[in-house]
């Protein structure tokens, strides 16, 4: 499974929505609120065995930024 697919899976699960596509962002997804944002960060840390700093978590506001952040860590 590619990195992108894995992240989409985690987002589907965290936001409890059926369809998540690569254009998802905090702006266009109602479920991606500030609480679930932290759950997402925590799930990503576990799934990829990385640590995200609070500043980095704050920057991950859409799918492409999440991917870019992960790529810089892996």
């Amino acid at each position: 499974m590619s990195l992108e697919e894995k992240v989409l899976d985690i987002m589907r699960e965290t936001f409890e929505v059926d369809n998540v596509s690569a254009d998802i962002s905090q702006k266009n997804c109602e479920r991606w609120d500030s609480l679930r944002h932290l759950t997402l960060a925590s799930e990503l840390e576990d799934a990829f065995d990385i640590e995200l700093e609070p500043e980095e978590i704050a920057e991950m506001t859409d799918f492409s930024r999440v991917i870019a952040m992960l790529q810089s860590k892996l």
Binding site: S34, L35, L38, T39, S42, E45, D46, P54
Partner: peptide, 16 residues
């Protein structure tokens, strides 16, 4: 502590 200070939840979200 990282998550507590960001979100007001002392219990580690990784235990959810």
């Amino acid at each position: 502590w990282k998550y507590y200070l960001m979100s007001q939840t002392l219990l580690n979200p990784k235990l959810s």
